[in-house]
């Protein structure tokens, strides 16, 4: 694998929004612990806007970097806008990915949408 761009290393070495949220409004998972990549995203929602977001990831460098980008893209967006975040946007945020790592950017989309689902329909649903 060849990753040489600065944005990628920045997000890999210094990922944003790492950790957990107390009492999150939504929590979503992506990946599969038994196959290696495993992402958990937690969100706080205030007036339909993602006011805070945190992630935890056990995965390769690309999984970590794209998870970080996902949280940056989502923070401050409305729930509806956050739904529109695509794997391509996430990939762009790390300056592109080699072919065999492209699937990593889907991890963020999956976990973020799961967190949004959890906020809207799941057990995390609350506070109208």
């Amino acid at each position: 694998m060849e990753i040489v761009n600065a944005a990628f290393f920045d997000h890999f070495m210094d990922p944003r929004n790492v950790g957990v949220l107390e009492d999150p409004d939504g929590k979503g998972k992506g990946g599969d612990p038994s196959c290696g990549d495993w992402l958990v995203i937690m969100i706080k929602v205030r007036e339909e806007v993602i006011s805070d977001i945190r992630f935890q990831c056990r995965g390769c460098s690309a999984a970590i970097a794209t998870s970080s980008v996902t949280t940056e893209l989502a923070k401050g967006k409305s729930v509806a806008e956050a739904r529109e975040i695509t794997a391509e946007e996430i990939e762009k945020g790390v300056g592109g990915l080699p072919e065999e790592k492209k699937h990593c950017s889907l991890l963020g989309v999956t976990a973020l949408n799961a967190a949004l689902d959890d906020y809207l329909y799941g057990k995390g649903k609350k506070k109208a």
Binding site: M13, R58, S61, A63
Partner: peptide, 13 residues
């Protein structure tokens, strides 16, 4: 509890 590739790349940096 760590993915080997991430560790390798971090150590490479």
């Amino acid at each position: 509890r760590i993915e080997g590739e991430a560790l390798v790349l971090n150590l490479s940096v």
